[in-house]
Amino acid sequence: MRLIDVVLPRRCGVCGRVGASLCDRCEPLLLPCGPPCCERCGAPGPWPVRRCAECSGRRLAFASARAAVVYESHARRFVASWKERGRRDLAVVAAGIVTATLARPAVDVLVFVPGDHDRQLRRGHAPAASLARELSVLWEIPVAVLLRRRPGVERQRDLPRSERRANAARAFAPCGSSPARVCLVDDVYTTGSTATACATALRKVGARRVEVACFARAVR
């Protein structure tokens, strides 16, 4: 046992129970995000469809999006511990759940959604980047830094759904040429606006196909 585990014992990211980062009681409570699901955006549903009501009629820059779990109460507590309480150990747990649930993407690189600089300093880590690095090890796919976040753009979570698409569209810019096949990694898929904005930026610098992989997905 490490000294740090004695001084600061590890707790479950969902219930706070001392022991594992995700305890045996809470792990089964994380709801798998399909299948069946929408072939394009990954929204779970009663049967598989090519385009669901949520993404039909929208111009999505990514080829497909998939998430491991539904972003409901237990997943929300896990993500809150991970993102807001500096629980870096939960990135390892999240990556394990993702790789156990989603098929390994046939891509050249993993690219993470860049986080806000001030929030990253406050948290001490960037969840999407941490998840991408852990997935890189498990999937044996390299990580590339191909996106940057423009300063002065409002946080997506502070905006109503109707304003998120326009806000995300101006939030990201490419910072290097992209290989043809890319998997974009993020912690939570909410409306798809961030994924589309990042995929659009990647396509401008060479990406031909962008897939999206997330730990959790909000479901209407």
Rank of each mutant, 00 (worst) to 15 (best):
105 P>Y: 13
105 P>H: 13
103 A>E: 15
80 A>V: 05
146 L>C: 08
122 R>H: 05
154 E>C: 00
79 V>L: 03
48 P>V: 03
135 L>M: 07
156 Q>R: 08
140 E>H: 12
92 V>I: 06
65 A>R: 10
105 P>R: 13
88 R>P: 05
88 R>N: 00
42 G>Y: 06
143 V>Y: 03
140 E>P: 03
36 P>N: 11
89 D>I: 00
158 D>Y: 08
74 H>T: 08
78 F>S: 12
147 L>R: 05
89 D>T: 00
73 S>A: 14
61 A>C: 10
116 D>R: 11
31 L>W: 09
35 P>E: 15
64 S>Y: 09
103 A>T: 14
32 P>D: 13
147 L>T: 01
150 R>P: 10
130 S>I: 02
110 L>I: 02
58 R>M: 08
115 G>L: 05
32 P>A: 10
60 L>R: 01
49 V>Q: 10
98 V>C: 11
111 V>G: 04
110 L>N: 05
41 C>M: 02
148 R>Q: 11
31 L>I: 09
75 A>C: 08
95 A>R: 04
49 V>N: 12
90 L>I: 07
127 P>I: 03
126 A>K: 03
35 P>M: 14
73 S>N: 10
99 T>F: 03
103 A>S: 15
160 P>F: 06
36 P>M: 08
110 L>H: 04
133 R>A: 10
107 V>Y: 10
55 C>L: 00
71 Y>Q: 04
71 Y>D: 13
147 L>Y: 02
53 A>Q: 03
68 A>Q: 13
137 V>P: 01
152 G>T: 02
120 Q>R: 12
63 A>P: 00
41 C>F: 04
29 L>A: 15
94 A>I: 01
80 A>M: 11
98 V>W: 13
155 R>W: 02
39 E>M: 03
54 E>Q: 11
30 L>E: 12
98 V>A: 12
41 C>A: 08
93 V>I: 04
30 L>D: 11
133 R>E: 11
114 P>Q: 06
77 R>T: 05
155 R>A: 14
100 A>I: 00
163 E>T: 04
117 H>K: 07
67 A>T: 03
121 L>D: 09
146 L>V: 01
156 Q>H: 04
134 E>Q: 14
113 V>Y: 03
54 E>G: 11
158 D>V: 06
153 V>I: 01
133 R>V: 02
83 K>E: 08
74 H>I: 00
76 R>T: 11
37 C>H: 14
49 V>H: 02
89 D>M: 10
133 R>W: 05
35 P>K: 15
73 S>W: 07
159 L>F: 07
61 A>F: 04
98 V>H: 11
46 P>Y: 10
63 A>G: 00
139 W>G: 10
106 A>F: 07
124 G>H: 04
86 G>A: 08
105 P>T: 06
108 D>G: 13
78 F>G: 07
120 Q>A: 15
126 A>M: 01
69 V>L: 10
55 C>I: 02
153 V>T: 09
127 P>C: 04
122 R>K: 08
99 T>G: 05
58 R>Y: 01
61 A>L: 01
85 R>E: 15
119 R>Y: 03
35 P>L: 10
114 P>L: 02
120 Q>D: 09
56 S>H: 07
76 R>D: 06
96 G>H: 05
149 R>H: 05
122 R>W: 01
113 V>R: 06
69 V>A: 13
35 P>A: 14
160 P>R: 06
